[in-house]
Design a protein around this nucleic acid. Sequence first.
RNA 1: GGCGACGUAGCCAAGUGGUUAAGGCAGGGGUCUGCAAAACCCCUAUCGGCGGUUCGAAUCCGCCCGUCGCCUCCA
Length: 460
Amino acid sequence: MKLYNTLSGRKEEFTTADNAVGMYVCGITPYAPSHIGHAMMSVVFDVVRRYLEFKGYAVKHIQNFTDVDDKIITAANENGVSTEELAEANIAQYHDEMDTLNVLRAHVYPRATTEIPAIVSMIASLEEQGYAYNVNGDVYFRVGRKEDYGKLSRRSAEDLLYGARVEVDEAKEDPRDFALWKSQKPGEPAWDSPWGAGRPGWHIECSAMSMRYLPEGVDIHGGGQDLIFPHHENEIAQSESYSQTQPFARFWMHNGLLSINEDKMSKSIGNVITVSEALSRFSPPALRLFFLSSHYRSPLVYSVQNINAQERAIERIRNAAAPRNGSANGGMLDASEYRSVFVEAMDDDFSTPRALAAIFDLSREINRAAEQSKDVSAAQQTLRELVDILGIDIEHPPEDSDGDIAPFVELLVDIRAELRAARQFALADKIRDELTERGVTLEDSNSGTEWRYRAPHQGG
RNA sequence: GGCGACGUAGCCAAGUGGUUAAGGCAGGGGUCUGCAAAACCCCUAUCGGCGGUUCGAAUCCGCCCGUCGCCUCCA
């Protein structure tokens, strides 16, 4: 399969020495509930993992939590809680929400604060090797010593030095240098180190953790496109300097960012949609379908209208996968062609839009074949398999959140059947219309009336 | 200012040299149905603009217009 590598700027053949794949994904900083951009990132890499596993790879998925940083400290102080408490609460919520979105849990979720020894030892080694220097308890990485610095983000030293916004800090030897260790300021949590009390800089944790948990090497290192610079660039610099080997990670994958009204989601602009908000409004399969409807490297614009459209699309797939009760006597539908198209699309840098097209084509073919009394059960099994690779759960249709309405709906369906038998259509239609308004759809067929709950349309 | 990405039907979105330009949603017309719903069938784009390369371009090159991201914490 081919995979786009940010490092080379093109698609490369993805191969591994054995069947094992080490995948490190930069996770969230849990200073607030997650927004749907985080959800999109998580879904993207969940699909990467699921597909690699489908291809037979044994994937080890590591995803970190940056549980101490300026924003966490600020937010904890504002809320009058410790940084641990704040991080803990947001991490728990993240896990709950990702479970709801059918995101498989990573194998390890290391946290900066529980990896201090590994971090300190790495910084110490960098200092010994001359890649880092200590200024009054702050330790910086010496960017000038890493001759190929900028190779991931394609930035030259000139770009960085003469760019408009390089931070001016007298303590640094070079404005491009970045902090590996930050000395403690009043009121901040801190850990002991050879340089005094302090905490890790932002980038070092990911280097330390990925090396510790993926000692065989990082095959895929992922994250949002906004992490390319400086975060991942700096990770490469410090990791390769430390180990004296490269590449630090073989494939760099970056997902496009989700924006709202053409602007990137950002706390400071105030245009954040939280995951919990989205989940209260849309079904998990519809959200996943929305995220996967465009290629992962493309930016995506949040749109209530578009996500709602995915609810209908999910129903289309669900209907195609639903059991048929007619007798099959017209041969069997072969779905292998659709499966091949799906695999071919996914093999091409995870082209989920094309993979989805194969799923919809197969859905139509199943419906068409069923009308011709063909046996579609095997094809439906394939459909379920493909949908499952994308983590889209069609087995659990939406339910009424207000409790179990089934007995009451069934009572009304029975009464309506009697009315229809008596040709009292006005009253029968009234029951159906009223149920529709309340989110229950009735479908009459030769074999009786089916009903299902359907999340009501939302405005937008 | 520097680096990068993008601009395809009403909306979303594939396609990156040659096919009738995928798929989803929405819309129109049919079939089925007591009427619906679901499903099926049919219909709805010449690819931001201009120029160039080529037998041939949405697909390559140049310029222009527009949008976005990064360059600072950020999935």
